[in-house]
Each structure stands twice: as structure tokens, then as C-alpha cells.
Amino acid sequence: MLNIKITPATEKKAKPDSKHLGFGVFYTDNMLVIDHTEGIGWHDARIVPYQPLSIDPAAMVLHYAMESFEGLKAYRKPDGSVQLFRPDCNAERMINTNKRMCLPTLPVEDFVQAVKTLVKVEEDWVPSEPGTSLYIRPFVIATEPHLGVRTSKTHQFIIICSPVGAYYSTGINPVKIFVEDEYTRACPGGTGFTKCGGNYAASLISQVKAHDLGYEQTLWLDGVEHKYVEEVGSMNCFFKIDGTIYTAPCVGTVLPGVTRRSCIDLLKHWGYTVSEERLPIADVMKASEEGKLEEVFGTGTAAVISPVGELRFEDQVAYINNGEIGPVTHKLYDTLTGIQWGTLKDEMGWTVPVE
């Protein structure tokens, strides 16, 4: 168990208008920091006022992208209490990421304790407007000043928090997706399954390309054959074809999303057939031509569920469900957000109270 020293900010920030939060714009009064030193381990856990980081210009994170991060949320329930959604899953995923990135791992129980402790200190920052939440960003950085490619001897685990509104300002309206067939996001044996900044930096070129063509997001294909569907931007992707629901397998090139995992559990609980076999983009476009592509949606912590209304691959365009949200997509969104915000009973045992 961590011994967390709490020295909170004495000067409080003015709270933003909870009806106009945006996403990732505002930050709370405090942050959590834990140091890591080779031969000692994790030490000096503390909550301190939110402030700029002081690191050496030669810090290895700046030169070799030696970092990892997570994303989860705290939710205000109707009775005013606050809860988290499956934080242990984020902790487990960060362990897997850090092992791949040669970064130190924080035990699940310590990760969850750190998150709960900071959220409790920042409880007043958890908004109560419908659709709002407190976004929580834990991350690990290599801090040793050294210009040489090897593992770092010092690190920091840091958590910052940001009150947020809906990820998409227009609500859960269907988005238009461009299928990337030129650039590659991940290959077998690489870091595609990890949550590291390099994955996202490398994906920006396709996002810019998609926006220039009038599309909101990119659907990535596999990096070997450019044939099988994988992820959409910062989300996992699901396809409902002739009654069966498909999503890419987590075999090293796809992020094992917590929302993805929760959707699969719910869908199976409701009696749907869920396939995690590799799905060729050609089969998706063929299903559209035959009228069998019933629903497409992305899943992620930030957006929760994002329905897809249009899919473009090369010169083909698939229009899904007349550009409207499908019934399964809608049910998943209502169920997940109901559990997260405490308006539905959590029959899955996924929520964790912040006490």
C-alpha cells in the first residue's frame, strides 16, 4: 500500500462552466507524483499543487519517447457520490504497456489507490451536468538525463485530472470514417497493443489526410497485408454484419480497450454472437453492397460509443443504417453510460466508489 503525502494547493482555481467544458482544456488544482529509482523502486508518493514539470533537457523521455499513459474517468452519480469504472483494467493494461516499453510497472492495487486518492482530493472538480465527467490521465516518463538509447534509471508516475464534457461536441451523431490504405499504424511484434505516445504521433498524418477529405476519423488496416480492419483513430471498432458483431482481435497490433472489453461482455450477455476473428475490409464493403452491413461503431473511454454513418475505402463508400444510430449501438451507449453515471444498476460489478 502506498504512503501518499498530501500537500494540496492552497490557492484554488476558478471552476469552469460545466456546460462548456470541452475535452482536455481545464485542469484541477492538484496532481499526484511518484518517483522511481533503479535499485530503490517506487518512492515519495505525493499529491501536490498542479504545476509545470521540472525535467532536464536531456531527459530520456524527450529524446527516445520513453513513456506510457492511460485514460479513465470519474463519474458523479445522482446521489452526489463519485465512482470509477473498471480502474483495475487500466492498471493491468499499463503494466502490459510498461513491460513492452521497458518502463517500471506499478502494481494494480497501487495504481487504483493512487487514482482514488487523487480523485477524492479533487472531488469538487467532478462535474454533475449530464454527459460530463472527470477525465483522469496517469502517465509514466523516463527522467534520467542521458543521450543514449538504453533503459532509464529514473522515472516518474504522474496523474493529472481534467473536467470534461462530451468528446464530440455534436453529441453521438454518426461520424464519417476514411479507411487508410497507404500508411501503417502497427505491425506484429511492435507497440500497437500499448498505450504509448509514439503510436498516436505516428497516426496523425492519416488523421490530417482524412480531415482534408472531409472525414472525421481513420480506420487502420493491418500493417502486413493492408487487408484486415483494426482500429479507428483512438478507438476500437465494431461491425454488425448480418446479425453477427465483429471486432479485431487483440493479438499485438490492437489496443485492448476497456470499453471494447465491456462492450463484448455486454453483447454476449445479451445473446449476440461476437467474432474476434480477422475481418477483411473487402468483406465489410461487400456486406454494404448486399445490404448486410447493419451497424458500425467505435468504442473508447473518451467518446464511450461513436456510431459510424459512412465508411470510405478507395473509391467505394458504404452508408450505414441511413446515417442514423443503430439499435445495438444505442443500447450499448445507454447501458454503459447508465452504469458509469449510476443511473442504471451495475449488474456486472464494474464500478468502484471513491470513498
Rank of each mutant, 00 (worst) to 15 (best):
T218K: 09
C237V: 15
V164F: 02
E324V: 10
L103R: 06
S54A: 08
V175Y: 07
W270H: 01
L255N: 07
V149R: 10
V112E: 14
N199D: 01
L147C: 08
T170Y: 05
V48H: 03
F193G: 01
G309S: 08
V258A: 03
R46F: 07
T28F: 06
G243H: 14
E182N: 08
D79A: 05
L2E: 02
L2I: 08
T218Y: 05
L21V: 13
G349E: 09
E225P: 00
L332V: 07
M66K: 10
R278D: 01
G148N: 13
T329N: 09
V25G: 02
V119Y: 06
F193C: 03
S152L: 09
H211Y: 05
A91H: 13
H20M: 12
D346T: 14
L147G: 11
P78F: 12
K116F: 01
E295Y: 08
C196T: 14
G80A: 07
P249G: 12
G171K: 04
G271I: 06
D17Q: 09
G189C: 06
T184G: 00
N3I: 02
G197D: 01
A186P: 10
F239N: 10
M31V: 01
V232S: 09
R46M: 04
K227C: 13
K195N: 03
L255Y: 08
N98F: 08
L134C: 14
E216S: 15
E216L: 07
P307D: 03
I320Y: 05
N3V: 04
T247R: 04
I205T: 12
L118N: 07
P8A: 15
P138K: 07
Y319E: 12
V33C: 06
E277Q: 12
Y135C: 10
T97D: 12
Q113R: 05
M235W: 05
H43N: 09
G198A: 06
D29V: 01
G349R: 11
I172Y: 14
